[in-house]
Structures are given as C-alpha cells and as structure tokens.
Amino acid sequence: MILFINFLTIQTSAAIISFIAGAIVVLVVIYLFYSSSPAEDKVSAKHKVYKMRARYFFALVFCVIAGLIITLGFLPYPQFQSRPDETVSVVGMQWAWKFAPGISDKTPLQMEGGSEITLPSNKLIKFLVTSSDVNHDFAIYNTNGVLVAQTQAMPDYQNALEYKFPEPGDYHILCLEYCGIAHAIMVGTIHVK
C-alpha cells in the first residue's frame, strides 16, 4: 500500500482504476452485441448467466469490504490527526483568504491577516478553517499544480485540516466551493521555506 502511494498520486490511481473499469464495461457491451445470437432457450441462458452472477456477487462483496477496510484508514478528520508543529487560522471571505499564525481569538470578520503566509517544510501544520460569510473550500495545490488537500470553509463552523508540506516552494490556495461572482479569482499563497 505504502509502495503504491509513493509511486502514484491518488489522481493517477483513480485514473488507472477507472480506465480499467470503463474498459471492462466496453468489453462486456461488445461481448453482448456478439453473444446475442445464436438463440438459446431462456432457462438455459439464464442458468449460465446466473451461475456467473453468483461468482460476481461474492467477488464484489469481497472487493467492497476490502475497499472499505483499506480506504477508511486514511481519513482527514480530527480523530485521525496528530499533534501539529504549527497552527494557522484561516478565514475565507468573498473573495479572498486571510491567514494568521496561531489560534485566533477574534471572530472571523475581525481576524486580521493577509492572503499570503510563510510556513516551514516538513512540519505538520494544522489549518483552522472557517468563513466570515458564505461557504468556501480551502484547497491546497502543490508546486506542481496538483490538488493535495482540502476542507470546506463554512460559516459558524471551524474545520481542522492537517498537512505537511514536503518541499519548499509556493503552494497556492484556490476556492473549490462556488461562492459568488468572483469565486474563480479567490486565491492565496503559502510560501514554504
């Protein structure tokens, strides 16, 4: 599993798995076009298909259980988080991000901060994310432009997101929840040293 994750991003893994699944569906459809004749009586054809269905059913149940066991161990939620090295308060607002080091004791509207912040690499950072108006989504893009982590910025709630920046460089924050007319230009930058 660790080997798998090291070589493939989640996006690449999703692409490979989905491509294989899509190809299987296409092959089944082609097979069905060609296997529709010759004619066979319904009972005998049904028997053959149902025999295969039983096998498929058990294989699928196994895959579903295995998939759940494997993937439910990698959750971004607070109970899976550890002790952070640094904490950053984040407020999403129409249409900018505000960052402030530490835990803010101000309301989201009153909190002061800029849309850029400098943070260390290889340290576990906890982002305490909220919003002063509507729903936003705090999405971290790495130096290669790949989305690596996100959480919603919601009014009245604070979502804690942990991330360790693996290498120095400029990481960009985009808003991934539609929040009004200037949604597409709501950006922030994290300079990682």
Binding site: T9, I10, Q11, A14, G67, T71, L72, F74, L75, P76, D137, A139, V146, L147, V148, A149, Q150, L176, E177
Partner: peptide, 10 residues
Amino acid sequence: TIAVNSVLHN
C-alpha cells in the same frame, strides 16, 4: 471514497 474525495471533490 473519502481519501480520494480529498483530492477530487469539486
């Protein structure tokens, strides 16, 4: 899949 949704959501 929650772990995948972290990088595909929206």
